[in-house]
Amino acid sequence: MNKPLLSVVITVYNEEDNIQPLLEATYNALAGIDYEVILIEDGSTDATVSNVKKYANDRTKLLIFNKNYGQTTALAAGIDQAIGTYIATMDGDLQNDPEDLPGMLQKAIEEDWDVVAGRRANRKDGFVLRKIPSKIANWVIRNTTKVYLNDYGCTLRVYKAEIAQNMGLYGELHRFIPVLAKQQGAKMTEVDVKHHPRIHGTSKYGLSRTFKVLADLILMLFFQKYFQRPIHLFGGLGLLSFLLGTLISFYLLILKILGEDIWGRPIMILGFILILGGIQLITTGIIAEIIVRTYFESQDKKTYRIKDIFQGKAKEVKNIKSES
């Protein structure tokens, strides 16, 4: 395939009922654009793979994982395979609308943006379980990272290929993709996009993600602010720890001078456990993350394994319309 203008990367996991309308909508939206579509099947247990093979056209590639790796790894695999000048990412649950892609691509080209991010203007999700946690997470991420986007949870985005393919996606960092792009000096903007209620399948997300997001936020803040100068973080914590320890020791010394027995006091034991344990846990987590990145990047290893790659056929575009 010649280098297309746009590569559309779509992650799918147990979306058998969404495949046909998803591909039909994507092909129709991209008519007149030189494109390729890359679907990443993330270990589905339903008929997702067979439906993609049934309805895919010759511009569609399907990456089939041998197990479920998660959305971030699936996006990384699709971006690695993309050969377009621009790369778009999109969910496969039909809540994102492919009709927004041409306008986002045009804006990126005409105004020379590195990233054009979607903002779900009229989000069709549950208010308590989805919208409120999302608003809180967006506010926290926006104000701690100083990357001022309104909707970090919207997967629908268009990137220049050189930005997307150098972000270094690991773990579950897909929510922080704008932060990773900003670290490369990317110029980004937001546009309102359509959002539809989920019709088929079930959501893979819930409130359990909250603590994972907070843990990843700590990691992102470290890489954003202290990766090249860790002494500013660990030195500051060390000084704070030393000062607190000194104050506690001085307080206990005064009590000792006054004749009180200070050995075995809960405040002394608890202080030691919390200070040393907290520093050790945070430090160990960050060091482990650096080791993982070094292991994969120094050897050009991937965090996933593709079991098979399927290339669609040209005739099957018509089959979609005739079977709809």
Rank of each mutant, 00 (worst) to 15 (best):
M1E: 15
L5T: 15
L6S: 05
V9R: 07
I10K: 00
T11D: 04
N18Y: 01
P21M: 03
Y27F: 06
A29T: 03
A31F: 06
I33K: 13
D34F: 01
D34G: 01
E41Q: 12
S44D: 05
T45L: 14
D46M: 03
D46A: 02
D46Y: 05
A47R: 13
V49D: 15
N51Y: 11
K53Y: 04
Y55T: 07
R59Y: 04
K67A: 12
A74D: 10
A76W: 04
A77F: 11
G78V: 04
G78W: 03
Y86Q: 10
A88I: 03
A88M: 02
M90F: 04
Q95I: 07
L105N: 00
A108E: 04
E111S: 05
D112Y: 13
D114L: 03
D114R: 02
A117D: 02
G118P: 05
G118Y: 14
G126H: 08
R130P: 00
S134G: 07
I136L: 14
I136F: 13
A137K: 03
G153S: 10
A161I: 00
G171K: 12
R175E: 00
P178H: 10
V179W: 04
V179D: 02
G185L: 09
A186P: 02
K187D: 03
D192W: 09
I199D: 07
L207G: 04
L217R: 10
M220Q: 11
F223K: 10
Y226P: 13
F227E: 14
P230N: 00
P230T: 08
P230C: 01
I231P: 02
L233T: 15
G238E: 08
S241N: 09
L243H: 06
L247I: 11
I254Q: 10
I257N: 15
D261Y: 09
I269R: 15
I273L: 11
I279W: 14
I279H: 15
L281K: 15
G285C: 09
E289W: 14
E289A: 13
E297N: 13
Y304V: 02
R305M: 04
D308T: 15
G312A: 06
G312P: 01
K313H: 07
E316A: 06
N319T: 01
S322L: 02
